[in-house]
Design a protein around this nucleic acid. Structure first.
Lengths: 227, 227
DNA sequence: AGAGATTACGAGTGATTGCTCGCATTCGTC
DNA sequence: GACGAATGCGAGCAATCACTCGTAATCTCT
């Protein structure tokens, strides 16, 4: 649990140290945060992750998050301006983490590494991440996310789509652009569809299911690349 | 639009004509419904379908459904006891329709009909149905459905899973049971993942995307059946 | 130790929303 | 036309929930 508290600057709303000149209008006093405060933020985000994963965004109440974190509602609102911001802070961490986990696909040498090998190596950590942070799927896949979460989700999906498209182009240079685009969209959709299965499965079934996810994608690639 | 109003007895809450004896406790007076009432129910369910599809279950208000149907909130509650019941009435129709659309897979002759042909023939109508009734995905896939909807969704998924498993067993009799089960689960998950893509796509892309969905499933079957 | 800032609390507020109730209108039937 | 039943209305009730505020405890730094 709490996979992100060791992560990079999550929920750190620290205004970057700007010039000491008075900001024009929307500037807030750069609050100096104590260690206690940082801990509370981690507690709150951890609690939020659990509650979002259990109930989805809409059904979770801020009071439930505060209660789960062992904190009063007032304290919650000392660190987050509103409910959206809590989800957004989580989403930002999730998006960054996924970007990192998906990076290996960016530059692959088709001659040296087979798609099979690349998927086999990368899928495991991705699956593990989603199992450790089930709220990620709840926020990103579960559709009805609030405004600020969508601001992070849509670009992440676009980047992932582009990554898949580039991957396909790498391994099948002669595929027409339209089919490339469609193939990437279908691959991403199938991937998103199977992930919930992996997250809800019992631990012992995870390796086999991960293998199956790889087979699903590879089987589609086979049909895509060889007409 | 309004794909279901000609369907079978949708939202018909008519208590079957029981014995005229006074029912023990939970019996309601069997209201005689006028033609006007039936029309209102269809209007309300049509409106509900649109609003659910646009906003998801949690975010839709009963007042919004009533307004969209051109009806006052009070009238809505004359035909449905609560918000859940509206979603449940829709879900019942959806579940029945999908059962019907998936029935062709029940009994196939592997010698006479290839999986390719079976999918090619059946996927089109299924996709069309989902495009005509986008609320079906919103309620069934969108996770956070209320209690009574889940009562319909879970069995539907179980039936679909069983159907896929039977299909696989038919075309690969020697596949071990465990792998059969896993294969069906992955197939269903991938299918559910790609459907939203089909529903949101522009009309002209639908045939190509339907073909791709078929390729995805067939590609996976290839890998599943031939190690 | 003392000053000033941050943290913590939790009852309360305003807005939203599922739903009700009393009454007016329309329909089906004689 | 008349009567009972079904339909229709919409203001308003009660509950929920995101969020606030006054106040008190605790920390940091000199």
């Amino acid at each position: 649990m709490l996979a992100f508290v060791n992560g990079p600057t999550i929920g750190r709303v620290t205004a970057e140290t700007t010039h000491p000149s008075t900001e024009p209008a929307a500037a807030e006093r750069p609050r100096k945060r104590q260690a206690r405060g940082e801990r509370r933020i981690a507690q709150l985000l951890d609690a939020a992750g659990h509650v979002f994963a259990e109930s989805g965004y809409a059904a979770t109440t801020t009071n439930a998050i505060a209660a789960r974190a062992g904190v009063s509602p007032g304290s919650l609102y000392q660190y987050f301006p509103n409910k959206d911001a809590i989800a957004a802070a989580l989403a930002e961490f999730y998006a960054d983490s996924l970007d990192e986990l998906l990076a290996p696909f960016a530059a692959l040498d088709p001659a040296a590494v087979s798609l099979e090998a690349a998927l086999g190596a990368s899928l495991g950590p991705i699956v593990r991440f989603h199992r450790d942070n089930p709220a990620c799927l709840a926020l990103f896949i579960g559709g009805n996310a609030p405004g600020h979460v969508m601001d992070l989700q849509a670009p992440l999906m676009a980047r992932t789509h582009a990554r898949i498209e580039a991957l396909l182009a790498l391994y099948a240079p002669e595929l027409p652009a339209a089919r490339l685009e469609t193939g990437a969209a279908v691959t991403l959709a199938a991937y998103k569809g199977v992930l919930p299965l992996l997250v809800e499965a019992e631990e012992e079934r995870v390796p086999a299911l991960t293998q199956e996810l790889g087979d699903l994608l590879l089987g589609y690639f086979d049909r895509l690349l060889r007409p």
